[in-house]
């Protein structure tokens, strides 16, 4: 181990930013788990769909390649976030309808749900890999948002898109928090996550609430997808796979089903990842990430902040 103390601060910053992206994706995992006690393996495809559709919308169909500025940039950014969010939400909706609901109707065994989720994830990923869609290589994302330096902190350069990520992530979390605690649908979700039978007896339409859960999770994943594509400058058929696993680890770390836990887990995981990459080398990143997951699951399965959809 050769940890360089001078590197801790800059990697801290970059790890933090990465963590916010994981947190946004983790929200989807956490909410579905809270309500259905099911890991939605296919959430990685939901995340990817948002970025990919915006790639098509503005990159292929409208062909916007020049960086924009001013009002047109704001409008385009808003549009891409909305489109991405809706695309992901739509795919989550489709996923729930086509893959999970039939199993619920048939009262399938737990294993069936997991296998279906894996099937859905791989179907979507490899569908995107086909030549009539993205193809196997990385596709350049339209660069209407000129990623440039915002400021430097602790020796690490923070880009303007990073600032946007942090701001939007916090805004989304607050919004979700309000949604869960203040709105009727949010209350219904909490009720369902506590006791499905009682919720039904209270007159809650389970199907609708479950659909809402998937859709809301999808909305945030879509926003994350668009931001991810802008930050790194490309989309690729398997762009969801690794972030999906990291986000799931983050959700478990913070407390599965717990929204604040998703944020905490995301940030923690981003930090642990980056710092370990500096200390032991980036080639051991996966080992570190999975070891963290295994340790958490064995030592504290409910995560740091505990389970349950609390705000």
């Amino acid at each position: 181990m050769h940890c360089n103390a001078a590197l801790i601060a800059p990697t801290f910053v970059t790890g933090l930013i990465l963590g916010f992206i994981y947190a946004l994706i983790a929200l989807g995992y956490t909410m579905v788990y809270g309500v259905l006690k099911l890991i939605n393996f296919a959430h990685d495809a939901v995340f990817a769909t948002g970025g990919i559709l915006v790639f098509y919308a503005f990159g292929q169909w409208f062909g916007i390649v020049q960086p924009l500025s001013g009002v047109s940039l704001v409008v385009l950014m808003a549009a891409s976030l909305v489109i991405g969010a809706l695309a992901s939400a739509g795919s989550a909706f489709l996923l729930e309808r086509v893959a999970y609901r039939p199993l619920r109707r048939r009262q399938g065994a737990r294993l069936s749900y997991l296998i279906t989720a894996i099937g859905a994830s791989f179907f979507a990923d490899y569908l995107y890999q086909q030549n009539f869609l993205l193809g196997p290589g990385k596709r350049e994302f339209p660069n209407y948002f000129n990623v440039s330096k915002a400021f430097t902190v602790f020796g690490s350069v923070v880009q303007n898109v990073d600032v946007l990520i942090v701001v939007l992530a916090i805004a989304c979390l607050i919004a979700l928090d309000q949604f869960i605690t203040r709105t009727r649908s949010g209350r219904a979700i909490r009720a369902l996550s506590e006791d499905q039978v009682a919720a039904q007896l209270m007159g809650i339409n389970n199907d609708r609430v479950i659909t809402t859960t998937f859709v809301v999770g999808g909305l945030f994943a879509g926003i994350a997808g668009v931001l991810y594509a802008i930050k790194f400058g490309f989309v690729v058929w398997n762009m969801g796979f690794v972030p999906g696993i990291k986000a799931f680890t983050a959700a478990v770390l913070g407390g599965i089903g717990n929204i604040r836990g998703a944020l905490l887990g995301g940030i923690l995981l981003g930090l642990i990842e980056n710092m370990s990459a500096v200390c032991v080398g980036a080639e051991w990143k996966d080992t570190v990430a999975f070891s963290v997951l295994v340790l958490v699951l064995i030592l504290r399965p409910t995560g740091i902040l505990g389970e349950g959809i609390k705000g």
Binding site: T11, T14, G15, L18, G155, N274, V278, G281, A282, D286
Partner: peptide
């Protein structure tokens, strides 16, 4: 001599080492 993980997209930790 440093490595990156080809499956991940964020190389910031390696870059921090290089930058130093």
């Amino acid at each position: 001599s440093f490595h990156i993980d080809p499956n991940s997209t964020d190389y910031s930790s390696t870059i921090a080492q290089v930058k130093s």
